[in-house]
Amino acid sequence: MSTMENKRLARHYGFRGLLLGGFTVYIVHLAKSGSLQYYIAPRMMIYLKLAALGLFVLAVYFVYEALQLGFGWKDEPDDCDCDHAPSRSKWRNLVLYGLFALPLAFGFALPDKAMGSDVVAVKGMNLNAAGAVGAARTSPSPGGTTQSRADDTATNGNVTVGQPAAGQADNAPAASSAASDGASSANGADPQSEEAKLQQLFPYDEYSEDFSKLGIRLYKRDLIRVEAEGFLEVSTTLSMYMDNFQGKTIDVSGFVYREPDMKPNQFIVSRLAMTCCSADSVPYGFLVESPDAGLKDDTWVRVTGTIGRTTYGGNAILRITAGKPTKIEAPKDPYVYPYNGDIVQLAK
């Protein structure tokens, strides 16, 4: 084995080892400083930490190999003698190592920052979570699924109390079991009829039953708190059965965001929902009308107000009429995540 060739390989392996080591250091740094959550969702973190371990092993191997070859401790490069040998084209190598260095350069050079208004401005705000999770198509589908009925009532909000939803009959047994579920907390003298009334207020089909149950539980409260856990699901329920919640008091926290065409007394209290990584984050929020709306974008606030309804951009959305919003500290974890458990339990 020629020494020059070994030296060339040693340089490549050294470079590769250093870059992979850099990734390991970067991941550990992010995990230690608590900034990892700005980039990936908590449930993905364990995989990334394992990956850091794998990268570390590879980095050590590459550096070890580079030292052995570079100092002539051995003659033959230790490999499978098959492929993936570093290219001889300098441009190819330059581009390749440059690409690997790029995330590290960005990672260490720019500050770790929670996504906020600037991201929302690019991605576009969602003010009707039901359009997202439970998506309601206003035109009935020719396929004639029962679901379109439930969706229609939810979206248009035209359902009047006492008018049974068309799909109701099929669901009667399920409905009564759902009713007994919440019966303990109901104060009504006649729980049976009370629950039946609620059922009509919260029509559902076989797929939106959980949202209906959650809605009924929320409906029994005077103050509805929208917590970070289950933010998406509670928002969805509130939007699906928007009209039922008119006049209730809502308590929600988030950062301030404004669209350019908003009135001066309006702002949006917003959260970003992340599934796996920052790239798939989606902003959700509630429109707030408040006499004291002059807060700067990205200020974290807690808003307590009355639920109403309005139209924005041609869509019916929920509106919160509030007093003065309270400024709060930005939470340690600024994002919300899809809830994987039983969503009915969100109304604990």
Partner: peptide, 11 residues
């Protein structure tokens, strides 16, 4: 861009 880029790469 950094937040998106690093996020996609890390994931």
């Amino acid at each position: 861009f950094k937040t998106m880029f690093v996020g996609i790469v890390l994931e």
